[in-house]
């Protein structure tokens, strides 16, 4: 507050002047892009986000360094898929890192971001101010989901890009031998890597929708994060039980490791399509649940 009444009046006058030119009751509605940009900037101004991305980047680096240091030319057949190919072709660092990250690290970071969407705002108390602004409940939900989806892209890209970088630095890069036995050149392999990135990102969208829904249920973000992450583990455990064969195609984690199909010649698109459809189903169901819950909910935090 200005120290004297005079200053206050000056400030008032200046402000009114600005207001007079800046606004009017003739409202120009923006699409809401500003809120989305702001959502991303809040996400990426958190140290937590960068810590998670750094942890993801550490996965390919650890793999590459471990393989390089032990200098194992042994084709043991143990360890994650594609591990043996790294010494011949550095690009496989990225692929191996994805195989390692998908069961836990990626769902973990996505669970943190998706679980935080609404519950995090509620726990800060900022949810009530966003709604009073008014952000609009539906609009806020959409912006929050798209923000979480953007993080899925980013998280996957971090693993792939770091993998390619460290792979190029530590290992030779040549033609890539596909699972089908065919060989493709460098640029074609980069295209395949981008396709794999897209596949993995899409795989995580269902989980994000689940996280968004859980986040609307509580004011405790840690609870929503933990529940989302636990669900991703449960889904994978169920997927590993042969007794539950009938259930497997419905689990959101069912296609998580199927991106290897993109390393065949010709590309086996079926799993890509089936995965996209499955994830869309999850988005529709849990998006609707989140909508139903959030639209009627009392914001008392």
């Amino acid at each position: 507050m200005p120290d004297s009444a005079g200053e206050l009046d000056k400030a008032t006058a200046r402000q009114s002047g600005n207001w007079a030119t800046g606004t009017g009751r003739v409202a120009r509605h923006s699409v809401g892009l500003a809120l989305f940009v702001s959502e991303l900037s809040v996400l990426y101004r958190r140290r937590r986000t960068w810590a998670m991305l750094a942890a993801l980047a550490a996965v390919p680096i650890l793999i590459a360094v471990a393989v390089r240091v032990t200098n194992s030319t042994r084709q043991s057949g143990r360890g994650p898929q594609f591990l043996d190919q790294i010494t011949q072709n550095g690009l496989f660092v990225a692929v191996t890192a994805l195989v390692v990250s998908i069961p836990l690290f990626l769902p973990l970071t996505v669970g943190v971001v998706a679980g935080d969407t609404i519950a995090g705002e509620a726990s800060h108390g900022t949810l009530r101010y966003l709604l009073v602004a008014p952000a609009g409940r539906v609009r806020l939900l959409i912006v929050k989901y798209v923000g979480a989806a953007a993080f899925c892209v980013c998280a996957t890209l971090v693993v792939v890009v770091t993998g390619v970088g460290i792979g190029l630095a530590l290992f030779p890069v040549g033609p890539v031998t596909l699972l089908s036995g065919d060989t493709i050149g460098f640029s074609e392999s980069i295209v395949r890597l981008l396709l794999i990135t897209a596949f993995v990102t899409v795989s995580l969208l269902g989980l994000s929708a689940i996280g968004l829904f859980i986040s609307t249920l509580t004011d405790v973000p840690v609870g929503a994060m933990a529940a989302t992450i636990v669900l991703s583990v449960v889904s994978q455990v169920l997927g590993a039980l042969p007794q539950l064969d009938w259930l497997h195609p419905w689990l959101f984690s069912h296609y998580w490791l199927s991106f290897a199909d993109l390393l065949r010649q010709p590309i086996a698109w079926e799993s890509f399509g089936a995965n996209a459809l499955l994830q869309l189903g999850y988005i529709a169901v849990f998006g609707a649940l989140a909508y139903g819950r959030f639209l009627t909910r009392d914001v008392l935090s």
Binding site: N18, T21, G22, T23, A27, R28, H29, S30, G32, A34, L35, V37, S38, S41, V42, R45, R46, R47, H124, G125, T126, R128, Y129, L130, V132, A133, P134, A135, G136, R139, L140
Partner: peptide, 30 residues
């Protein structure tokens, strides 16, 4: 409402900026 609430990791100005973007009628130019 029931006391102020902000993102502790953002500056005061950034917080206001954020809440202003939530209002679709708030002109971004000013």
């Amino acid at each position: 409402v029931e006391g102020p609430a902000f993102y502790p990791f953002l500056s005061g100005a950034a917080n206001l900026h954020r809440l202003d973007t939530a209002d679709r009628q708030a002109p971004s130019a000013t």
